[in-house]
Write a protein that binds this DNA or RNA. Sequence first.
DNA 1: CGCTTGCTTGGAGTGCACTCCAAGTCTCTA
DNA 2: TAGAGACTTGGAGTGCACTCCAAGCAAGCG
Lengths: 155, 155
Amino acid sequence: MTVTATDRTVREPARLTACKGPVLYPRPTGRDQYTISEVAEVTGLSAHTLRWYERIGLMPHVDRTHTGQRRFSNRDLDWLDLVTKLRLTGMPVADMVRYAELVREGAHTFPERERLLTAHREDVRQRIAELQSTLQVLDYKIDIYADARRASERV
Amino acid sequence: MTVTATDRTVREPARLTACKGPVLYPRPTGRDQYTISEVAEVTGLSAHTLRWYERIGLMPHVDRTHTGQRRFSNRDLDWLDLVTKLRLTGMPVADMVRYAELVREGAHTFPERERLLTAHREDVRQRIAELQSTLQVLDYKIDIYADARRASERV
DNA sequence: CGCTTGCTTGGAGTGCACTCCAAGTCTCTA
DNA sequence: TAGAGACTTGGAGTGCACTCCAAGCAAGCG
């Protein structure tokens, strides 16, 4: 049994610009075609992951050039924005795939989509509450160590 | 590639009682010896997981009966309480093992422990912020579906 | 005493979400 | 037009955190 230090290297998405409404990835104006590496850059996901998302049905159909290379659209970027946000909140990939299927099926799945997101919102709220309660424990513990440190410094 | 529905069956710990200070698992008074299955019941962790935690060094030394069976103490329960809280906040097991090592090494590791917990507190705060920002996106999306539903109901 | 139920171990297996590989094709710049 | 670097695929590999298995010992009950 070996437990090695976790590699916490997480690709950071390009910095977001503030605006009203949901914050999206910044985009060069007048463009609607992006290579996979440009999308990787802007979303913080790896090209591998983008291809994998497509394979498992988590992406709507992505355009291709005549030679088969992917060309992502602004709409794809919007979708990835939602997906990465849901992923950050710990929604399982399988649930996101389910949601993607519903989107593909059309407007008649609105009620089901609403249910899915509402249930997830409840999850997120609960997670926030959990985190906040742990924050208290952390504060409590840190105080103990800080007090000990101050006491020793006061010698 | 198959993506199956996630098994979300998560063992719930026995309900916590409200009190001032950190909330701990409820304990029968005057007892300081628990079998592994009792501890599993009270913490919500499986017996497998408890043995695994011990193997990887995430538990302080656990007492044994003369025949080798584990007998957990109230002190062990306190420790597991902290561990499960840290786990809920997504601290990697490797980091918790590191913290456990520091605890075993004695009081001279206080500063390092304080650093570790403080860094983690920062993580947790950031995660809360992330979740809250996603909550807004969720609200926004849900509103759209709810509006559509109300519009169709109003026919 | 036999039976059931619970505990022990090392090691193997699982599920998730990537992550990488090999070998070939395409695109861009000089 | 040559060469560097980016892109393609199916499939294999990785890391984490469990989760289970087999085979055997132990405790309590009728």
